Simulated scan of single mutants.
Amino acid sequence: MDDIERHAPAMGAFLHLRGNALSKGEPVALPLVQSSMYHLPGEPERFSNYGRVHNATWVALEHALEHLEGAPCRVFPSGMGAISAALFATLKAGQRLLIPGDGYYVTRLLSDRYLRRLGIEVVERPTAEFTTGGFAGLDVVFLETPSNPGLDLVDLAAVARAVRASGGITICDNTTMTPLGQRPLDLGVDMVVASDTKAMGGHSDLLMGHVATRDPDLLQAVDDWRRISGAIPGPHEAWLLHRGLETLDVRYDRMCTSAEILAERLAQHSAVKAIRFPGLPSDPSHNLARSQMRRFGFLMSLTLEDAGKAEQFINTCPLLRPATSFGGVHSSAERRIRWGDAVDPGFVRLSVGCEPVEELWQALNGALDTL
């Protein structure tokens, strides 16, 4: 835990990253640069030249993300844009990719529908059995921990060591935890991807993602992919994310603290057949969570009696938004089986927001009591 705390980003310094570099008369808030063309007489040299290649708002955002991740970052127009960049930048025909069979379903769709067709062998393993069979012969190992939506965990440090020893590279989707809750790069992972649409942006009003790595060759490959493919974010979205990051620390702390309180209470409710939350001492992943996570996160899963009871709970609780995605200031929930996840019909993914915890508990408890 001491090492985990020591590698945490300094959030006070983060809030003043821009301010401490300003000249007299410059705006404190980040300007929005919205231009596809730049004044460029003569040779381009190192100047901004075209909107697909460079944007000052992206640069400021990437500087902020670099502080949080402790590594250079590149931003993308969505979380899947970041995942796609990481995979297409590291794989080639004839190679083998390992992905979690119970992770985010769109990663599986990308791998099955596109990467397989390009001559890449895709291997799937459930998160709870991810190390079974070892990692020999695998070129890229894609991890997601906690898994979405089941919240199983993988030992990041152990997998990173084993994959490196076998000659492969590791990519970790850290969307559910953010760099404030879990730091895969510090644990030896080669590359991190995340959907900043979720808690990083935090206000459910943008789509963004990023890739972070300390390997200059991997960073260059991702940079080239973005420039050549055109998978670039809009400057307004980049500006919104930069603004959202300034409140990440207080939002994330509130969400995680509330989730710990609520999980203990929800676990005792008679309408809840099962609950998964890494912060519960009874959770099968609790000890691993304590060793590699700074916080236990704001996501939990509840299994109710059946699909009808799950829908009733979600739709009658006044402080829950029935919506896909997660990580916003508003608590939200959904039945994940409707997207094809291999879960119980009564399985509910619950994202705890920033509402006052006692008010939120009264709403959740009241909705459960009616089932």
Results as ranks from 00 to 15, higher is better:
residue 10 A to K: 04
residue 256 C to P: 02
residue 346 G to L: 02
residue 70 G to K: 15
residue 81 G to V: 09
residue 88 F to D: 01
residue 228 I to D: 09
residue 337 I to M: 07
residue 110 L to S: 12
residue 167 G to P: 08
residue 318 P to L: 08
residue 261 I to W: 04
residue 2 D to P: 02
residue 225 W to G: 00
residue 312 Q to V: 00
residue 47 F to D: 02
residue 83 I to N: 10
residue 299 L to P: 02
residue 97 L to Y: 02
residue 352 V to E: 03
residue 49 N to L: 03
residue 49 N to G: 04
residue 210 H to A: 09
residue 107 T to N: 13
residue 262 L to E: 06
residue 153 L to I: 08
residue 40 L to G: 01
residue 67 H to W: 08
residue 371 L to P: 04
residue 117 R to G: 01
residue 136 A to Q: 11
residue 25 G to F: 08
residue 104 Y to Q: 13
residue 146 P to D: 09
residue 149 P to F: 11
residue 27 P to C: 08
residue 61 L to Y: 10
residue 94 G to K: 05
residue 338 R to H: 12
residue 239 W to M: 05
residue 338 R to M: 06
residue 115 L to Q: 11
residue 29 A to E: 15
residue 43 E to M: 03
residue 92 K to W: 14
residue 357 V to I: 05
residue 330 H to P: 00
residue 105 Y to P: 09
residue 353 G to P: 03
residue 83 I to L: 13
residue 367 A to K: 05
residue 309 K to L: 00
residue 114 Y to F: 11
residue 238 A to V: 15
residue 292 Q to G: 03
residue 197 T to L: 01
residue 321 R to G: 02
residue 12 G to P: 05
residue 307 A to N: 04
residue 71 A to C: 04
residue 179 P to V: 10
residue 42 G to K: 01
residue 142 F to W: 14
residue 178 T to Q: 06
residue 269 H to Y: 02
residue 130 F to N: 06
residue 225 W to D: 01
residue 3 D to P: 04
residue 152 D to T: 03
residue 335 R to Q: 13
residue 201 G to M: 13
residue 180 L to D: 09
residue 62 E to A: 03
residue 222 V to G: 08
residue 12 G to E: 15
residue 156 L to D: 06
residue 210 H to Y: 15
residue 209 G to R: 12
residue 262 L to G: 00
residue 157 A to Y: 06
residue 161 R to A: 00
residue 109 L to M: 12
residue 345 P to H: 15
residue 246 E to A: 10
residue 122 V to M: 04
residue 172 C to L: 15
residue 65 L to W: 14
residue 54 H to C: 07
residue 161 R to H: 14
residue 250 V to N: 05
residue 362 Q to F: 05
residue 323 A to R: 14
residue 367 A to E: 07
residue 73 C to I: 04
residue 312 Q to D: 10
residue 347 F to N: 09
residue 291 S to T: 15
residue 286 H to P: 02
residue 188 G to E: 07
residue 210 H to F: 13
residue 12 G to Y: 12
residue 366 G to Y: 10
residue 249 D to A: 11
residue 198 K to N: 11
residue 368 L to R: 11
residue 244 G to W: 12
residue 326 F to A: 00
residue 368 L to G: 05
residue 212 A to N: 14
residue 89 A to T: 11
residue 223 D to E: 04
residue 84 S to G: 04
residue 211 V to D: 09
residue 15 L to S: 11
residue 48 S to V: 01
residue 159 V to E: 13
residue 7 H to T: 08
residue 178 T to Y: 11
residue 329 V to L: 04
residue 292 Q to P: 02
residue 137 G to K: 07
residue 93 A to R: 15
residue 14 F to W: 15
residue 132 T to H: 11
residue 285 S to L: 06
residue 10 A to P: 00
residue 65 L to Y: 08
residue 136 A to P: 07
residue 155 D to F: 10
residue 359 E to T: 05
residue 26 E to V: 07
residue 1 M to S: 05
residue 170 T to W: 11
residue 125 R to P: 01
residue 91 L to T: 03
residue 369 D to W: 13
residue 164 R to W: 15
residue 206 L to I: 05
residue 154 V to D: 05
residue 317 C to K: 06
residue 189 V to T: 07
residue 172 C to H: 13
residue 106 V to M: 06
residue 42 G to T: 03
residue 327 G to E: 11
residue 137 G to T: 12
residue 85 A to V: 15
residue 47 F to V: 00
residue 61 L to K: 05
residue 184 P to F: 03
